[in-house]
Design a protein around this nucleic acid. Sequence first.
RNA 1: GGCGGCGUGGCCGAGUGGUUUAGGCAGGGGCCUGCAAAGCCCCGUACUCCGGUUCGAAUCCGGACGCCGCCUCCA
Length: 439
Amino acid sequence: MYVCGPTVDNLPHLGHGRFTLVWDVARRWFTFQGLRVHYVSNITDIEDKIIARARRESRSEVEVAAQFEAEWWDAMDRLGVIRPDDTPHATDYVPEMVELIASFLARDVAYVTSDGVYFDVSKVPDYGLLAGQPLESLRAGARVEENDEKRSPLDFALWKNAKPDEPSWPAPFGEGRPGWHTECVVMSLDLLGEGFDLHTGGLDLKFPHHENERAQAEAAGRIFSHHWAHHGWVMVGDDKMSKSLGNFTSLTDLLAKTDARAYRLLVMRSHYRSPIEVSPSSIADAERALERLDALARRFDLPALGGDRFELASSQPWAEESLELYERVVAAMNDDLNTPLAVAELFDALSAANASADEGHLAAARRLAQAVNSLFGAMGLSLVAGSHVLDEVAERLVRERDAARAARNWADADRLRDELVVRGWIVEDGASGTLVRRP
RNA sequence: GGCGGCGUGGCCGAGUGGUUUAGGCAGGGGCCUGCAAAGCCCCGUACUCCGGUUCGAAUCCGGACGCCGCCUCCA
């Protein structure tokens, strides 16, 4: 699968976080189901905005790209997004792009203007397939074009001629740099080969970016991706979060004050094609739901799963209680990745496990809880029982409180509980006495 | 103008011709508890509006209204 990656010209924003989580969940699920996944996601490291920023900050494009790529991977690690198997960089593929563009020129699928090389969309008979519109109606809606050398407003730049002080590469058709639409075709076909399974990206990439990629593959006579999937936006209020509106929140900021797992859960609780609104209240909602998951882990002492270790569904012990849950979750996930339904099934099972334990069916309850844990883990969401490691003071207070309670000395018991709370512990009474944990 | 998506209970969010409820969060009541916490049980009886099809529609069809997106850099 090929996931259209970021242009590293700024901090990653919430939308980047959403889509990397969506496809991380997909990838993990495919793997869990026993598919072999080759996950490729690119880094666009040469582009107008990178150049603009480098200019503005009087440093090199390479430096800017390196800085924001580092920020990108840092955020990905914190989100628990597994690194792609390959992360091709546009600048590593310039010769291949030049070669492709030259072949287009040789076959008259592209033409040269004073500022670069353009792809002639009229040479691809089914141009507009992804947009769901024929060429003519797309052309009718195109905005007024200032470049009158283009044969059609829909023609797009394959190559931009070098400008003073801008990075450039040699090419038979003149020094310059590649246009954005060419890198993904070249890199995906190189790393995944023809006829790979899935190509994904944001809804805004469907047209023109993906259409243009497809057109180039078509024009080159290569079989491209068999399937396309486009994810929805992160909304801010009623607007799409976007670079042009300047209304984006950086992922870096969010992760500084939020459990990354809450964002994963929030993302999983809506369908990948739907828009989601990320706000303090939607985050808080997810955080509370997450507390219930962690409470299950505490109650049944479940191990944290969901790191980068892949397990296979076939290796799990789906016993009586858990088999039905597993089948429901599979049905949901295999229906266009219906993660909200899968999560609902898992919460249902969570209640059932607790109820069953309340009724004293501990072994059965534990099996169900373990299945819940495995399935969340398969989607990359770890349930965390949390630390029970007590310092000396806490240990003493717990001991004293248990003694006070045994003596039915409620005043002391309550005072000792307050002392623990003041020290930052959450106090709960269990069958074996006082239980404390960190929030 | 063309194309596409959406409108579900306080909020988020699945579902889709009819059997028993999606699920989460918030709220109310109860059980448990010395009191709490955690957990469990019960409670809202919702599907923008107007027509139509049907024995029966939130679900299909038509229309209206509202919102959003793409056609321009964007995940």
